[in-house]
Simulated assay, not measured.
Amino acid sequence: MTADQLRTLIAAGLSCEHLHVEGDGRHWFATIVAAGFEGRRPIQRHQMVYATLGEKIRNDEVHALSMKTLTPAEWAAQGRPQH
């Protein structure tokens, strides 16, 4: 699994305004900004991301994924640029 492959999987399942993935092939960190996160608790947001990975997460192709999941408003509040 590469960062590009992981980014493609997440982007295919979520409409992201911003998506950054980095890691070493086993341990990953993703910053994901999506309007679909509005009104959802962090655990629900993470479940949405895990759902996009499907079998890849269950088969341990994605071993460890840490995430920062934000709404566009939360992203903007951190001083990040709007896309």
Rank of each mutant, 00 (worst) to 15 (best):
L9M: 14
R41E: 00
V49K: 01
G79P: 00
E74I: 02
V21K: 07
G54L: 10
R41S: 05
T52F: 07
A3D: 13
Q82L: 03
Q47W: 00
H83W: 00
Q5N: 06
E17C: 01
R26W: 07
T69G: 05
E61L: 15
A30D: 13
R41P: 00
L65Y: 13
R58K: 15
A51G: 03
G54M: 11
P81R: 13
V21M: 05
F29P: 03
H20F: 09
A51T: 09
Q82Y: 00
D4Y: 08
G39Q: 05
V62H: 10
A30P: 13
G25M: 05
A51N: 08
H20K: 15
I57R: 13
E38Y: 02
H20W: 04
T8E: 12
G13E: 05
L9I: 06
A34P: 01
A76S: 04
A30W: 14
E74Q: 15
V21F: 09
V33H: 01
D60Q: 15
E55I: 09
G23R: 12
A51H: 11
L9Y: 12
L6K: 12
R80L: 02
R41I: 09
G54S: 14
A34W: 02
E74G: 05
A30S: 13
G54P: 11
H27R: 15
G39T: 11
A3Y: 07
R80S: 00
L65I: 11
Y50W: 05
E38N: 07
A51E: 08
G25R: 07
G79N: 05
A30K: 13
Y50N: 14
V62C: 11
G54T: 08
V33L: 04
E74F: 04
E55F: 06
A73M: 02
